[in-house]
């Protein structure tokens, strides 16, 4: 059973690496932000699987913290891009230069 869990963990790690490719390639900052969301969900699953496979219960707390921090990163990105008071925002952060 632990072999299966380790294989699943390896597979999730590979999906994470695919996310890194999107971060490198992503035209707009919003796409890069999506990849960080991918890290949020896939990272939580990876940590939970490893917690079960290697019997390290503290990894579950790490997964919980990662899930919460994913929201903070998205909130930080959005507040930087979309000023709440609506002043001039960082246009190129969202729309790529090339696809205008």
């Amino acid at each position: 059973m632990t072999l299966v869990l380790h294989l699943v963990a390896l597979f999730l790690l590979l999906t994470l690496m695919l996310g890194v490719v999107r971060i490198w390639h992503g035209p707009t900052a919003a796409d890069r932000m999506l990849a960080s969301q991918l890290f949020g969900t896939t990272g939580v699953a990876l940590l939970l699987v490893l917690a079960e496979a290697q019997q390290i219960p503290s990894l579950r707390d790490v997964a919980l913290i990662l899930a919460v921090l994913a929201v903070f990163s998205a909130a930080a990105f959005v507040t930087r891009v979309v000023r709440i008071e609506g002043e001039k925002t960082d246009r190129h952060a969202v729309k790529g230069h090339d696809d205008d």
Binding site: T28, A30, M33, L34, Q37, G40, T41, V44, L48, R60, A63, L64, A67, V68, A70, V71, S73, A74, A75, F77, V78, V81, V82, T89, R91, V94, K95
Partner: peptide, 28 residues
């Protein structure tokens, strides 16, 4: 605890997806 993590992850990705979508939507 695993169930709690699941629900936190669900809420986390739902809100962050909405935030990012709104940010993108305003600019396009």
């Amino acid at each position: 605890k695993t169930l709690l993590i699941w629900w936190v992850a669900l809420a986390a990705s739902a809100t962050s997806a909405h935030l990012v979508a709104r940010a993108v939507r305003i600019h396009e």
